[in-house]
Write a protein that binds this DNA or RNA. Structure first.
Length: 259
DNA sequence: AATGACTACAACCGCCTTGAT
DNA sequence: AATCAAGGCGGTTGTAGTCAT
């Protein structure tokens, strides 16, 4: 017997989310917390499958997300982590607070891969491209020691220096974050948090660098990036009631009787 | 100005893992 | 121990925006 689909697909909407759908989802989660994704669309009045709601929230709507390009430091960190962890994007993301596995994966595929190749580094092995790698040797998840790289024969001037810079060694303690502020919500792999009885409070979320509309770094020609360009999302007033500066509380568990 | 190629990233798909029963 | 449901994860696709011709 095959696996059942995560939801009834008939009549469900697919494709890009509308601002109205975003609003509904945010409002619902801020009010009720995140749990039981399968039930979310129905209760929130969305014609989406629960999985889609979870993804939308995790990858785009979560208030503790950073937006914009990865900084140089983040990029190097991703490279280092990838050298140690391989394509385990959620693990990598757990070391970069405010970044999602999807975002890092996309950035890797579109930017970093290219950059590494340009520098003469194989993005999969993190070794100089011209050094023939034995295809019989697994290289994705078992190349934890990159400090013994042979000198790259690539004569690109920037190659060796940059490669040496990037292929540094950061020892990552398993299951630990480099950022003490990194909450479990920094990754979609926060399944454990759902069983945590301590509610996540709004102010506990990592907001310092977070702005709904903010300027990107100077390397970006776009200047201002509107995270949520529409007015409806430019503040939280439309969300659950939090008057007089009172902030909404993220709840880990749903109110009794909600489901 | 038109259009085709390229790029970036949001979203989807299907398999895997985990926890409950 | 076996089964099932739900969530998580990584790979892939779709599409809007940008650039080059």
């Amino acid at each position: 017997m095959g696996r059942q689909p995560c939801c009834e697909k008939v009549g469900l909407k697919k494709g890009p989310w509308t601002s109205e759908e975003d609003k509904k989802l945010i409002n619902f989660i801020l009010t009720n917390g995140q749990c039981c994704w399968r039930a979310v669309p129905k209760l929130a009045g969305l014609l989406r499958c629960g999985k889609s709601c979870r993804l939308r929230w995790t990858n785009y709507l979560r208030p503790d997300l950073k937006r914009g390009l990865l900084s140089d430091f983040e990029e190097k960190l991703v490279i280092d982590l990838h050298a140690q962890l391989g394509n385990r994007w959620s693990k990598i993301a757990s070391h970069l607070p405010g970044r999602t596995d999807n975002e890092i994966k996309n950035h890797w595929n579109t930017h970093i891969k290219k950059k590494l190749r340009k520098m003469g580094i194989d993005p999969q092995t993190h070794k100089p491209i011209s050094v023939s790698t034995d295809p019989s040797q697994p290289n994705l998840h078992s190349h934890h020691n990159t400090e013994t790289l042979p000198d790259s024969p690539i004569d690109t001037t920037e190659t060796n220096e940059s490669a040496q810079t990037i292929i540094s060694t950061i020892s990552i303690e398993p299951e630990t974050s480099l950022n003490p502020c990194a909450s479990s919500s920094s990754s979609s792999s926060s399944s454990s948090s759902s069983s945590n009885s301590n509610p996540i409070r709004f102010e506990d979320l990592e907001f310092p660098d977070f702005e709904w509309v903010y300027s990107n770094d100077t390397s970006n020609n776009d200047n201002d990036i509107g995270f949520w360009e529409d007015d409806y999302l430019s503040n939280w007033d439309f969300l659950v009631g939090h008057e007089d500066g009172e902030v909404p509380i993220f709840q880990e568990s749903w109110p009794c009787g909600l489901i």
